[in-house]
Design a protein around this nucleic acid. Structure first.
Length: 488
RNA sequence: GCGGGUAUAGCUCAAUGGUAGAGCCCUGGCCUUCCAAGCCAGAAACGCGGGUUCGAUUCCCGCUACCCGCUCCA
């Protein structure tokens, strides 16, 4: 296998060459932090999303919990708008955190909030404030706005300002009552969503890893406060195993609990699922998903208004007039518990995963270089994407060994039959060896070849991507053969 | 956002102050009975904008993108 740095270059090159990922707007020079998915990338990405939706939502059995699940629960999916009422982001706390005026020191590289400059220290001379030490070289206050701003309606004025969502999560919180009222769910239950989010990252970096437009797969799981710790641990462990089940090796994966200092002001427990991406220094990991215990922070925020921590409590932040600085909806988002006949504000466990980051990890993990013996038995190098069959963009390719003697006709019949169920490819160009290699680079798990024997006994060869081993399979059994091995 | 580097074909690279070559890939044809075969033909590039110059892909400046450090990451 190639060395780490080299590996990433090869992965990026393969992504471009085979049509997985392109720079956005490339013919105009590209635009930083945005990427396009090509024909194979779009299929791969759909498969990542669908694997998640299948495993977390559609395939969830709310009547019989498997071992390890604290209790049965319901799971429903929603899809909410990217542009939401601006008050959502004020109550959630995003607005204030994103609107900072910041001052940088060109010398010591420190960064200060403009409104807190008087309370800050110069890192090189802690007895003085930034700018007071002789070597300080401060920039003017500059506005950092990490949320994309837009205008609703054609009229451009401050009244019509809105934002592209920086996370999908708020869509679930603001629809908590709607789901409760319509989906016949009771605690505990989860709301799931997959969708695009946008953050004006200061430094997009590492290929698609830190993009300004990205896609999230998020669950907001609502439960009784006294059960929330149990559910937090359940989701943390389950989400880790999900990545393993789709092929990420446990050696490159890590489940990391945040230290108390690292926790957000509202969180009483957060763990990240992290992957040792090849572009990171040895020993460092990058986040794929965060599983956060958010307590009742979100529902309370949307009831009462933006919350801040005071001691051990979260209280509504007030303005100079004593009223909430950023009021909530004022709607009652509490839950009526039929058993205790009392109302409570559910706690929330939030497994929040990145589609693009997972996809990148799956590709990095799958990239392999090995050797396959040629017709003389001499090992020849090959590049192969050993993607999990559920993720592979193309599930199988069908070839006629040669372009005559009825082989193309038979191969096309098989191709059309399989095409009704899976994304399959047909290829009759070039030597058979080259066609196998092409599919290897695309990550296609199986290649089906019609040869001279097919006419005699109705069998074809099926070649396994990872082992290159072939076996003869009757055409009539192909569908069942693939169904079993594609695990779908 | 700061500092450094890079930018030539889809990919990997080369050459050049007088408008660019190769390998792989790709397309068409011939040939081909299982792991990158061969032959013929073909398509395809100097990131963008200025400046210097008779002439710039080449030298200079700016921009953009990517890479490497730092910073940031609700």
């Amino acid at each position: 296998m190639p060395e780490k740095n080299e590996l990433m270059e090869k992965v990026v090159s393969l992504c471009k060459r085979r049509g997985f990922i392109f720079p956005s707007s490339e013919i105009y020079g590209g635009i930083g932090g945005f990427w396009d998915y090509g024909p194979l990338g779009a299929e791969l990405k759909r498969n990542v999303r669908e694997a998640w939706w299948q495993d977390m939502v559609q395939g969830h059995d709310d009547t019989t919990p498997p071992p390890g699940m604290p209790s049965p629960y319901a799971m429903v999916g929603i899809e909410t708008s990217i542009v939401m009422h601006p008050q959502v982001w004020k109550a959630s706390g995003h607005y204030d955190l994103f609107q900072d005026l910041l001052i940088d020191c060109r010398r010591c590289k420190a960064r200060f909030r403009a409104d807190q400059l008087a309370a800050s220290q110069c890192p090189e001379k802690p007895s003085k404030r930034p700018g007071e030490h002789t070597t300080c070289d401060l920039t003017p206050p500059r506005e950092f706005n990490l949320m994309f701003k837009t205008y609703v309606g054609a009229l451009v004025d401050p009244e019509s300002e809105a934002y592209l969502r920086p996370e999908t999560a708020q869509g679930m919180f603001v629809n908590f009552r709607n789901v409760l009222a319509t989906a016949r769910v009771k605690l505990p239950f989860g709301i799931a969503q997959i969708g695009k989010s946008f953050r004006n990252e200061i430094a997009p970096r590492y290929f698609t890893y830190r993009s300004r437009e990205f896609e999230q797969m998020e669950i907001e799981f609502f439960c009784h406060p006294e059960e929330s710790r149990l559910w937090y641990e359940y989701w943390r462990d389950r989400r880790f195993r999900w990545y393993v089940s789709l092929g990420l090796s446990e050696e490159r994966l890590r489940l990391r609990e945040h230290s108390p200092e690292e926790l957000s002001h509202y969180s009483c427990g957060t763990a990240d699922v992290e992957y040792a991406f090849p572009f990171l220094p040895e020993g460092e990991f990058g986040e794929l998903e965060g599983i956060a215990h958010r307590g009742d922070f979100d529902l309370r925020s949307h009831m009462e208004g933006k919350l801040v921590r005071r001691g051990d409590e979260l209280v509504v932040e007030t303005g100079p007039d004593g009223k909430p600085r950023h009021p909530g909806s004022g709607k009652d988002l509490s839950y009526f518990d039929e058993e205790t006949k009392g109302r409570l504000i559910p706690h929330v466990i939030e497994p929040s995963a990145g589609v693009d980051r997972s996809l990148l990890a799956f590709i990095c993990e799958a990239y392999a270089e090995d050797a396959v013996p040629d017709e003389s038995g001499v090992p020849q190098p090959r590049v192969v994407l050993k993607l999990h069959p559920r993720l592979a963009p193309v599930k199988a390719a069908v070839f006629p060994l040669i372009r005559r003697d009825g082989m193309p006709e038979t191969a096309l019949e098989i191709y059309r039959e399989l095409k009704r169920v899976w994304n399959v490819a047909y290829d009759d160009r070039g030597s058979i060896g080259r066609r196998y290699r092409r599919q290897d680079e695309s990550g296609t798990p199986f290649c089906i070849t019609v040869d001279g024997q097919t006419q005699e006994d109705g069998t074809v060869t099926v070649r396994d991507r990872d082992t290159t081993v072939q076996e003869r399979v009757p055409i009539v059994e192909l569908m069942a053969y693939l169904r079993e091995r594609l695990a779908m």
